[in-house]
Design a protein around this nucleic acid. Structure first.
Lengths: 140, 140
DNA sequence: CTCCGTGCAAATGGTTTGCATCTTA
DNA sequence: TAAGATGCAAACCATTTGCACGGAG
């Protein structure tokens, strides 16, 4: 979910979070990324502009974004967490071999999923839909 | 997926795994459990009959069951893995507060899910469908 | 008799915590 | 100037690994 710095700053301030250059950089990167990056990956990106940034700050900022409902954390076996800034209903297509994650989103899927929810008769506060595949590259 | 000892023994032998009392006990417990237990939980159950059993053996046996396709591992933020012996398409209804997991399975859901897969045009090797809720107890 | 499984202890590694220092509001 | 954020180092803890012994085939 990409947004302007002004929008972002309002959201942080409204929730009582202070605005720092590190936070802006991390948020901008994570919220516009389609890669479902790991903390390590985010760090290696942000360190280019903020050479002293610590992994700790990445984790704390992720906690903030999760608290704000702007990011979802996905844990997997045998690898670090991935952070997903797509907060609408969507399917994560995940390659079993290379761990690449691709989002799939459509009106049809939202419709079918809402029917599944209706059948279960629950009030969801969130969801995670993973499909495990072998991506085209790994299939070779 | 409950099965007889004989069925289980065949499956293990056919795949080159040796049959031990510990393995049988762990498999019987996990494959019949509806609780999506943690390794710690499994250990505390098996230790009643096998007082010397180690956590290590639990983890290794889980690896074996995953390899055999009889169990799926589910990782979460801030807690240990849960092992799910329901290998058919189903939805995990997970309480955000107490981490209780309840399976939901029906013909309707399998049908709707297969339509979602058709729309995405992928060949899945597995899936994980989580819905996060507040369970009735935690809602109070 | 050989190989694999077990249990113990130690290592691993992603994540969290404690704390002194710096920044934001 | 008070509350909160940052960066460093140390702690944590679920999981994994190394290894000597024991049991399965």
């Amino acid at each position: 979910m990409t947004m302007t710095d002004d929008q972002l700053i309002s959201i942080l301030r409204d929730s009582g979070y202070k605005v720092t250059p590190q936070r802006l950089a991390i948020c901008n990167y994570v919220l516009s990324s389609k890669e479902h990056p790991t903390a390590e990956h985010i760090h290696s990106e942000i360190v280019k502009k903020h050479p002293a940034i610590s992994l700790n700050t990445i984790y704390q900022t992720m906690d903030m974004l999760i608290d704000l409902g702007l990011v979802q954390e996905m844990r997997f076996s045998g690898s670090s967490s991935r952070f997903d800034s797509n907060t609408s209903v969507h399917v994560n297509i995940i390659c079993q071999k290379c761990s690449k994650i691709q989002d799939f989103e459509s009106e049809g899927i939202r419709e079918l999923w809402s029917r599944i929810l209706a059948e279960m008769n629950v009030e969801p506060v969130g969801q995670r839909l993973d499909v495990y595949v072998l991506c085209d590259e790994c299939k070779r």
